[in-house]
């Protein structure tokens, strides 16, 4: 079954990549719009608050995070809004990590985690006031299933927001370079496919949602979102600069040789670096966006 293959693909990818992400990126595994002089942490947090704003999350609401990673966004949005957030994730390693980090941050009264598949979620229908997915639905082989599940679990009148990974309208499937960029991103980031904007909008509407807003947030990012993966020379960003990457790589190779780093680390690291490069290239060419924002509403009169 294609579905299960895509879950496996995501799982294998994240089993290996999680530690690298946390080390190089922090506790939120997504991109962000960036402004001049803005710190990376600030930009990341702002990208999450935008979700809270678009969803109009209120204290005491029940909110679902579909594909929650290690819970960075859930913790941040929970402390910001005082809503009760349930994080759903298919990856065992990440979800254990999510719980540890949540306890350590002292927000476990607002965030809980469930291991499960967002294409077939083990959660009751009409349960959540709001739901969101941050750069997660891209892992589904069939995006429509994610929207179908979000719709099912929302109460009438409930809102859903997502940052989708898309090939933009500038993407020309007959252009070999474009095709190559797309394939490199899929390979480097463990994805079954990358959706067009049309596919995304179809998933929204065909599942009954009322579309409230779409925006390619790339167009609202004066400093390109991919610049965080390009050479910069501050110490904090060192790890994701080419030199830093290379040194990390060499260091890992050493550790792996003497048996400290899990074997395969070097390979994963190389894959991640390639993934990063293909994202930068896709971003520069304007054919790829990791932040196509969708805000949608489940029709109906809000209930308790």
């Amino acid at each position: 079954m294609r579905q299960d293959n895509s879950s496996d693909l995501a799982n294998q990818y994240y089993d290996l990549a999680t530690d690298f992400f946390e080390y190089g990126w922090g506790e939120s595994f997504h991109f962000a719009t960036m402004h001049k002089g803005e710190s990376f942490e600030h930009a990341i947090a702002k990208h999450e608050y935008r979700i809270a704003l678009k969803l109009r999350i209120e204290p005491g609401e029940k909110v679902l995070d579909m594909g929650c990673g290690v819970g960075g966004p859930a913790r941040n949005i929970a402390t910001f809004t005082e809503a009760e957030i349930t994080g759903l994730n298919i990856n065992d390693y990440q979800i254990q990590r999510a719980r540890e980090l949540t306890k350590a941050a002292g927000v476990d009264h607002l965030c809980e985690f469930v291991k499960g598949d967002f294409c077939k979620a083990p959660l009751e229908s009409e349960t959540f006031d709001k739901a969101y997915a941050i750069e997660a639905s891209c892992h589904a082989a069939d995006l429509s299933k994610v929207y179908r599940e979000a719709y099912r679990m929302l109460k009438p009148g409930g809102l859903f927001a997502s940052y989708e990974w898309v090939m933009t309208d500038k993407y020309d499937p007959t252009n070999p370079y474009h095709k190559q960029l797309k394939e490199e991103i899929m390979l480097g980031d463990g994805l079954p496919d990358i959706n067009s904007i049309e596919t995304v909008l179809h998933a929204v509407k065909s599942n009954g949602f009322e579309l409230l807003e779409t925006a390619d947030m790339v167009e609202h990012s004066p400093v390109p979102w991919y610049s965080v993966m390009q050479p910069r020379w501050t110490l904090a960003d060192f790890k994701i600069t080419p030199l830093g990457r290379w040194l990390t790589h060499v260091a890992l190779m050493g550790l792996e040789l003497v048996g400290f780093a899990p074997s395969g680390s070097v390979k994963v690291h190389r894959t991640l670096c390639k993934g990063a490069d293909s994202l930068v290239n896709g971003g520069k060419e304007g054919v790829f966006s990791p932040m196509f924002l969708v805000v949608a509403r489940k029709p109906g009169k809000p209930t308790q």
Binding site: K62, T86, E112, V114, D117
Partner: peptide
């Protein structure tokens, strides 16, 4: 897991 979370879980995926 709190009972709050138990209250929304279902096995209807089977």
């Amino acid at each position: 897991m709190k009972l709050l979370t138990h209250n929304m879980l279902t096995s209807s995926i089977i």
